[in-house]
Design a protein around this nucleic acid. Structure first.
Lengths: 273, 273
DNA sequence: TCTGAACGCTCCCCCTGGGGGAGAGTCCAC
DNA sequence: GTGGACTCTCCCCCAGGGGGAGCGTTCAGA
């Protein structure tokens, strides 16, 4: 079967078939030595269909190759499953992008309400780890469960977290979650930790965290507009969260950005104004 | 604000910001004439965020530009909605690709059951149009509704369709749907039409049409293996369909591919064997 | 046996939306 | 004034294709 006939049967363009040959993804059954003509066999149609479908799922050609060369159907299925998991992640990202976009494009965004607050140092029960940005949610759930088990009824306030800037800039960084309590225990990953004193620019994000990036952006704008610079990890306090109510619309998250006035000598933390 | 500071605030890489400048997507507030240094303003953060989100939705840069330059929020919202519609389509495509893939990777596919059948010419009530491949489903629903209204109880068999090869090869081609009836009416788009006699290679697809492409592929393989060539539009007969049962698993679709034996002189239709 | 259309070949450049790195110039605080 | 961090432009790279030039092959009809 010539490349044109094969193309018609598989709905892959002639160009694409040649490319797949070059990539050793789908080699013609016979290649005429003298003319270079490619001839395909009927038995290659299923492989071509598999490739077509995988490409529709945006599986990279290298992965397609790996899948085709895996004889064990079980392993093969798991490779495909891996990719489907990646698709799910993309879908998630897409969903939150849509939510943020709605808010970003809203005709008249309400002006942001920012409070400058001098926060004293305090000791809390904490769990910390270097995590990837996309794993934060999962990690948070586990860490907070462990914290609640360790602290129990001795909790003296809402939970919070501190997230290194590298987490946003390099997609990976130090994250700390904590529960305030009078005498922090030390069990498992839970240990006492000191939150340093800081001058914080604080605003409150309302509702789910889908569009929290937008609030971050507004806070960042405020900080720059007020001639300040950011110093240190961002803090979040889950004033009202899933522990308190099942209605995400009622959630309140305080975002605190450590700041100092631009021009203050030595780059140290600013004195409260 | 230098490009680096702006980069940190928006989570867009310095490189990407420069690219956006080049593309006239997001121009720095000030560009130093002598050094070429780019300086951004605080008021550009929201635009950068919008771009970021749109890019997460895979909106092409040209469309992002169009959206940003549209002052009317209503028009802007509709541009975004258009893209969301496109995302939905991709999602649909992904879903069917997953279903097909499952079947394609099944360890032991049952051998296909093909019958060679000489179909006589017959006259039916038909609706026809040149449609795009992805619009076939929608178009079919409307056409079939009109057919049923026109023919009513005079129906003498299951509905069917005939789909030009161009529909699969060029993504656009002639589609015909019909209902068999003794005296085809002529109202609206409905008119009498003659299905030409043909030698058909017929197989039956079971269930939803998500993975019907796989059955097509198997039929194509059979046709080539049996030394035949395809001649003319493919036919489908909806022996058991949504009109008959709400259980998609019970659907039966006959796929008939007009064939002729390779080597028959003049390329005319084959005599039945 | 010739001829012309249809089809095939390779090679090169183009597109999208980025990333890596070289080599040189600039900014700013000490 | 000096060093380090930052920025500039320029070129090459990636995937996964598409367009087209220029030329060779196949095959059926005359």
């Amino acid at each position: 079967m010539t490349i044109g006939e094969f193309s018609r049967l598989t709905h892959l363009s002639v160009r694409t078939l040649r490319r797949y040959h070059e990539a050793a993804l789908l080699e013609p059954a016979v290649v005429d030595e003298t003319t270079g003509y490619r001839y395909y066999g009927v038995d290659q149609i299923p492989a071509a269909q598999v490739i077509h479908r995988l490409r529709e799922l945006d599986v990279p050609l290298s992965d397609v190759q790996r899948i085709l060369r895996t004889p064990d159907p079980g392993v093969r299925a798991s490779l495909v499953a891996d990719h489907l998991q990646r698709l799910e992640d993309v879908l998630d990202r897409t969903r939150t992008a849509v939510v943020s976009l709605r808010r970003l494009l809203r005709p008249d965004p309400a002006p942001i309400d920012v409070e400058l607050r001098a926060e004293p140092a305090r000791t809390v029960a904490a769990v910390e780890a270097v995590v990837a940005h996309r794993d934060v949610t999962t990690w948070y759930a586990g860490a907070m469960a462990e914290l609640e088990a360790a602290v129990g009824a001795a909790v003296t306030g809402p939970p919070g977290g501190s997230y290194d800037n590298a987490l946003f800039e390099q997609e990976r960084g130090l994250a700390v979650v904590y529960l305030p309590t009078a005498a922090p225990p030390r069990t498992g990953r839970v240990h006492p930790a000191t939150l340093p004193a800081a001058e914080l620019a604080v605003t409150t994000h309302v509702g789910e965290h889908d569009d929290i990036e937008v609030t971050y952006g507004e806070l960042g704008t405020w900080v720059v507009e007020n001639a300040m610079s950011v110093a240190g990890p961002v803090r979040e306090v889950y004033v009202v969260g899933p522990r308190d109510t099942n209605d995400p619309a009622a959630w309140r998250t305080e975002i605190g950005w450590p700041v100092f006035r631009v021009g203050v000598v030595e780059g140290g933390p600013a004195a409260p104004r």
